[in-house]
């Protein structure tokens, strides 16, 4: 869906900003909103670009930095940490060839940390494009990534 058609669903009220950003980012394969789009949204709502950029910067869900097609979020909170989360991250970094915060060269995966996913009883956990994977082991992680790689080919 184009930005114009999403904007047209909303009245020109600043309170609609967050919902517009969420809905629009959902449509983007790189999970990011560009400077030009920020300008367009700001102009529509009659707020400054700085305001829109500020709101995006506040929420980890929103981004202006382009990401891979699949965003892998590894929980870094304490229950996951004590359940060997670092081994999960290390495995992911090794098989993807990137560090946390980076995107693979083929733009398929972005690896990042997240706060608690609410799966402490099944730690360690991660989320890929909204889907939760828990009770992770390095082997499980390898299988999951292979499955996503297969999906894209």
């Amino acid at each position: 869906m184009s930005l114009e058609s999403i904007l047209s669903k909303f009245t020109k009220a600043e309170t609609n900003l967050l919902e517009i950003l969420l809905q629009y980012q959902e449509t983007k394969t790189d999970h990011a909103i560009t400077e030009a789009e920020v300008g367009q949204i700001a102009a529509y709502l009659g707020v400054t670009e700085t305001k829109v950029a500020s709101v995006i910067s506040f929420y980890t869900l929103l981004s202006m930095k382009p990401k891979g097609r699949y965003v892998i979020q590894v929980c870094k909170n304490i229950p996951c940490f004590v359940n060997e989360q670092t081994a999960i991250t290390r495995t992911l970094e090794k098989i993807l060839g990137i560090h946390a915060g980076e995107t693979t060269a083929n733009n398929l995966f972005t690896l990042e940390y997240t706060s608690c996913l609410g799966c402490c009883d099944n730690a360690p956990a991660m989320r890929i494009d909204g889907k939760i994977y828990a009770n992770l082991t390095p082997d499980k992680v390898k299988a999951i990534i292979s499955e996503y790689r297969g999906r894209s080919s």
Partner: peptide, 10 residues
Amino acid sequence: GVGVLELMGR
């Protein structure tokens, strides 16, 4: 009423 500066990030 200009708003060129904002808090970014958290």
